[in-house]
Design a binder for these strands. Structure first.
Lengths: 222, 222
DNA sequence: CCTACTCTAAGGGTTTTCCCTGAATTCTGA
DNA sequence: TCAGAATTCAGGGAAAACCCTTAGAGTAGG
């Protein structure tokens, strides 16, 4: 039995390239591709893949949101995040979303294949750099301020607030953010206000700066 | 005779994926890969490829600078830029650097292969969206004020516009920018509008992103 | 000198953001 | 189970940003 894989990325070349790359492995079969989080969510019940390779930065629903949706409906699917940016934020958020692996985009073919086989076998797969990051984070959390338990690290922004930041910092208007997250503009406004207050910022422009500065979003890709 | 190709991208997966993708074409042969502009410049004399697929956003020397270097030493090499970002800036700058083609990252295999064959044959290849952008630009230049000839890059930003960007991207409101530069809010609005138009952006949030991404402002201090 | 270009600015209208308040669910930890 | 978060949303008003047009003053090049 081959390991069935679904590839989710909004760049056609990366998608096709990845598929072509994986076609060299006898035990792996790419059964589908999606160019957005929404598409992925819809395709999963139909294709029922064993592993999903998911880009994190995508227009509309991002990889982590999509992962949450998918895991909610089918907890058996394994999700590997492929991101060009390895930030604390992404990793911790990703883990909270239940991802099974995290591979940086500058990994090579071998690493990707190993990651797929590993998570298909039920084990988590995290790249060396990511493991290091997780440990560091764990260590510093233990050290500086006792357990912040479930709370997100830092200023105390919530999960949803981080999602809002990602959207806003990618240059979207309130309306566009609302559409992307399937909530009303009023909700987005409220979240945004809370975020600005918590971070001590004055407007959305400063929020974009903050987000980029603190690695909440990545600048490459779109 | 196959068309020899060099792939330059700092993402391993994209690099390998692209190579794998192109291996399906009998008339194309990937003779080398580089993960940076510097590496590419060094590899060209040795490998002497006919076509180079070059990412634009890379750490260190970016794709356009690398293209200038390479073209200076070997004008026969054809360079195709593969960018996830299709902005007026990149395209016009790219053309000035002597690129032979420009393909967005969301193009598919077919487009890339066609692009390679086209430029190898000595013809420029520009994606539909890019052609549109160029024509629009050409048209608007003809319309509103003839050739701007010598002066700045036609669509280039003026000195004042860069000053405005710096201010805006540091998180200031229009009023604050106006105060800082001793002009009226209306002037700031006008400048901002012109900048957004020139860069093909939709709002100030995207301008902040653009400014940081392109190093117009730094994130330290302030 | 004429032309293109930059920088400045205003008028006037539309849309979006920002602010403040209030409030109904759902989640979650103790 | 119960209080406190977190998430959702609304109304209404003030402020800011955005859009479109027009236009004068200054400047550099042919």
């Amino acid at each position: 039995m081959k390991i069935t894989v679904l590839i989710v990325d909004d760049h056609t070349i990366l998608r096709e390239g990845m598929a072509s790359l994986l076609s060299g492995s006898d035990d792996i079969e790419v059964v589908g591709m999606a160019s957005s989080g929404e598409e992925a969510v819809n395709l999963v019940p139909e294709l029922n893949p064993r592993v999903i390779l998911m880009d994190i930065v995508m227009a509309g629903m991002n990889g982590l949101e999509a992962t949450r949706w998918i895991k909610e409906q089918n907890a058996d699917v394994k999700v590997i995040i492929i991101s060009s940016e390895v930030t604390r934020e992404y990793v911790t958020q990703g883990i909270k979303c239940g991802i099974d692996g995290y591979v940086p985009k500058d990994a090579n073919r071998e690493e990707v294949v190993t990651a797929i086989r590993t998570v298909a076998g039920g084990t988590k797969f995290f790249d060396e750099a990511i493991t290091k990051l997780i440990f560091e984070d764990y260590y510093s959390r233990e050290k500086d301020g006792r357990r912040r338990s479930t709370k997100s690290p830092g200023v105390g922004l919530t999960k949803r607030e981080y999602e809002i930041i990602e959207q806003v910092a990618s240059g979207k208007s309130n309306q566009e953010v609302a559409d992307a997250l399937f909530v009303s503009v009023k909700t987005v406004e409220t979240h945004k206000k809370n975020i600005l207050d918590k971070l001590g910022l004055k407007n959305s422009l400063q929020l974009v700066r903050y987000a980029i500065k603190n690695g909440i979003i990545s600048l490459d890709e779109e």
